[in-house]
């Protein structure tokens, strides 16, 4: 029954990630055409089902679906029967009954897409669930990083991030982006260091295959990429931090800090950015920033994910995908034992 879709980066493994990156290469080329549209998914229907607000992710998925000529449907919790008390299950079963091929689900609760995948026939793509994962964000980050590395080397993009050193900075504990990025970056061979105060790091990173440090300046001396996470103001109310000022001072990419940076250091951010807290405005707009490339590449990567799920054999899931996400070891699997299929 379970032919889930894409719920976690663990569903892909290294080989699955590489396959998506290759597909995204060709779709990036499509996006450059004067009419950026291919008939690959004509007759298929993609529904974006968002129980939590979003700008870029939803628009990006919808653009991806449209460029593949799929029909799209949009569901937003705020304008739906959910406000009348309809349950998650009833809501998604109703959408499923309309006949959709892929449900792109965002939800404020970790694991909600995994639950949805047990109830619907459609493939489920996790577009961000609580503090769990945001796999397409991690995929577009891999794509963007690989592109930037290739540009720097003046060569074609390679398949992995071997040897690339990446610092993920800030509120890792509450970040679904961080969880997916750690899995994806590690799967592609990057070295990952998590940077933040202990209150914003996961209770344990046992099995994650990462380093943890609490001092940003030490970390910045040793990395190629600084990946900043958004800091939500509710962390102050939860008393996880004394003040935004102190956070910015210790973990923000401030102007002063930027002056000391290696000129080659790349900066990434999943958005939405809080300029002046985790990142100084001028850094966000500087050449070292990949932020707009991340957004730009999101469409091609999501086209690749939708295409991979729906084109050809509908019943062939991602390689290496377990039945039902999460039925895996807690340890991060660095190399998926994936078979292409």
């Amino acid at each position: 029954m379970s032919r889930a879709g894409l719920l976690s980066i663990e569903d892909l493994g290294r080989q699955g990630i590489v396959e998506i990156l290759h597909l995204a290469d060709s779709f990036a080329e499509v996006s450059e055409r004067s009419i950026p549209k291919v008939p690959a998914l004509r007759g298929k229907t993609v529904a974006t089902v968002f129980f939590e607000s979003s700008t870029r992710t939803r628009l990006s998925f919808e653009a991806a679906a449209k460029r593949l000529s799929a029909d799209t449907m949009t569901f937003t919790a705020a304008t739906s029967s959910v406000t009348k008390g309809e349950s998650l299950r009833d809501t998604v079963e109703t959408i499923d009954a309309l006949g959709v091929d892929v449900m792109v689900v965002r939800h404020g609760s970790s694991g909600a897409p995994a639950q949805v995948a047990r109830w619907v026939e459609a493939y489920v793509v996790n577009a961000g669930d609580g503090q769990h994962e945001h796999p397409t964000q991690a995929l577009l980050d891999c794509f963007t990083l690989r592109e930037a590395m290739a540009r720097r080397a003046g060569a074609d993009p390679v398949d992995d991030l071997a040897g690339v050193r990446i610092a993920i900075v800030g509120d890792v504990r509450h970040s679904r982006v961080a969880r997916s990025c750690v899995l994806a970056f590690r799967a592609l061979g990057a070295r990952v260091v998590l940077v933040g105060p202990p209150t914003l790091l996961p209770p344990t990173t046992e099995g994650w295959g990462v380093e943890v440090v609490h001092d940003l300046d030490t970390a910045l001396d040793e990395v190629d990429v600084c990946y900043l996470l958004r800091l939500q103001s509710e962390r102050l109310r939860e008393a996880l931090l004394p003040s935004l000022g102190e956070y910015s001072e210790r973990y923000g990419l401030t102007r002063e800090r930027a002056r000391r940076l290696d000129p080659d250091l790349l900066v990434m951010h999943p958005g939405p950015m809080i300029r002046g807290v985790e990142i100084a405005a001028e850094i966000a707009s500087s050449p070292r920033s990949l932020v707009t490339r991340q957004v730009h590449n999101g469409v091609a990567v999501r086209m690749a994910v939708l295409f991979r799920l729906l084109a050809g054999d509908l019943r062939a899931p991602f390689p290496g995908m377990p039945a039902g996400a999460g039925a895996v070891e807690p340890a991060v699997r660095v190399t998926g034992g994936a078979r292409s299929g």
């Binding site: 970790s110 694991g111 669930d129 609580g130 503090q131 769990h132 994962e133 679904r176 969880r179 996961p202 209770p203 344990t204 990173t205 046992e206 099995g207 994650w208 999460g326 807690p330 991060v332």
Partner: peptide, 15 residues
């Protein structure tokens, strides 16, 4: 339970 699984699953744990 707060531990390796809660950290991985992104579910706030109780220690």
């Amino acid at each position: 339970h707060e531990g390796a699984w809660s950290s991985r699953l992104g579910i706030p744990g109780q220690p």
